[in-house]
Design a protein around this nucleic acid. Structure first.
Lengths: 238, 238
DNA sequence: CGCAGCGTTGACAACCTTCAAATTTGGTGG
DNA sequence: CCACCAAATTTGAAGGTTGTCAACGCTGCG
């Protein structure tokens, strides 16, 4: 299997063989983490950068009312906290949703890369900018889209992101989470999340079962939400 | 008047006199831009970094339905697009809301700073991280707060940000925008924005008139929304 | 077998949007 | 200074979307 980090960063820079070798060395010796386990907690001051190689993780925060808000999903190839040591203190937490393989990259290794390898450095900054663009789109969607369009948008975005790291199977990809967690992501109640899913299933647009999402009618789904993956800043697939 | 960029970055690093002098030189020769004018348009590939020295600007996007979504406010001291040239193409626009003074900083000047001045470099990255944290909080608020709490949260956040650049007058600061624009920021209809404002006014919590916001009862306002400015990562005021 | 968590359903209430219209405000030209 | 116009604010009413509460069935696991 090709390394998801390399696949992802290839969208941002023309990586050379030496770059790929360097990135592969970074990914040696991942740590396996079980599902639903905190990786970094609010208040921590992490000194290493983390990289998800396998599985699904999220950024989240508990709220005064006891609820949980999830405001980012990390799929293989995604980095956490490339630069968060500058802030000193995490203002939110990270946790696994499924079982994950995570690599801890020492600060010195990142320093070495940014000092010596402009191609990879550029690609890393590209990745953080894309993360921010995703966040903006979630906010716009929350403000302006109904629940069914929001859900469809999330599923379409994830399809493109999984395809970008070679982990989609046609129009299908793994998403082993509960409807409760899906509600925490979308900011919807469990009940409404369930009803929205049923609506989209009845339309024949999507399937969400056995921990997988399948977009059954991508043409129509994209049109319904005017989906434009441009904000992910990926290269067209060859 | 002290330079807002210097005041802002002082929260992130112990600037030396030479740093301040360098930053002041950066801010020489601002351009005056009238209210409601685009600074950068979606699709552009800006080659300079911009800095707001005076006035209010925003990041926004027009939506398929013709509406406008505003997902960031820029106040004096805020930078736009420190690194966006990496993405090649803007996926949203920036515009002034009030009359602004904006500085264009050549890419070479940023390059020079990041190559030679680690204190300012660190402070600049800090600023982009804070921007991201603000974005996350807007998303969480949208998901989990009612309109009145959202509005209150926005007004409290802006108070803290204005205080951080020395532009607040007690618990009051300038916000010369219409209720329509406020609705675009909060993702609420104009009608509901208006009614929400009336509710908060009737509670004696805030005033919003003549282009200024005043938090009339900060104690109670903060408590109502469990406001914790920690996510802005500012130093305590002395 | 019993339990706990998840998915599903129904009924109802709350929040917010939309539509339509009246009122106020601010700017411009006579 | 006043008349006029456009834009913004405000009000009312109705309808749609989503949340909350409560209950039930299902599934996997000890």
């Amino acid at each position: 299997m090709t390394n998801p980090l390399i696949l992802k960063l290839s969208h941002a820079a023309d990586l050379q063989d030496e770059d790929r070798a360097l990135l592969r060395r970074l990914c040696a010796r991942p740590t396996a983490i079980t599902a639903r386990t905190d990786i970094i907690r609010e208040g921590d001051t992490p000194s290493t950068v983390r990289l998800v190689l396998r599985g699904l993780a999220c950024r989240y925060q508990y709220l005064p009312d006891g609820g949980r808000a999830i405001f980012a999903l990390l799929i293989p190839g995604d980095l956490c906290d490339l630069h968060v040591s500058i802030l000193g203190r995490m203002d939110h937490s990270l946790a696994t949703l499924s079982a994950c393989d995570v690599v801890e990259i020492p600060r010195a290794a990142i320093q070495f890369i940014t000092d010596t390898n402009p191609r990879i450095t550029r690609a890393l900054w590209w990745a953080t900018l894309v993360d921010e663009a995703v966040l903006r789109h979630w906010l716009v969607g929350k403000n302006r889209r109904l629940a069914d369009q929001q859900l469809l948008h999330l599923f379409c975005e994830l399809l493109v992101r999984f395809q970008a790291v070679g982990l989609a199977d046609g129009d299908s990809y793994p998403l082993p989470i509960t409807q409760i967690e899906l509600g925490d992501i979308l900011g919807l109640s469990t009940v409404h999340t369930n009803r929205t899913l049923q609506g989209l299933r009845a339309e024949g647009l999507i399937a969400f079962e056995d921990g997988r999402v399948t977009i059954l009618d991508r043409e129509r789904a994209w049109e319904m939400i005017s989906f434009d993956p441009g904000y992910l800043h990926l290269k067209r697939r060859r």
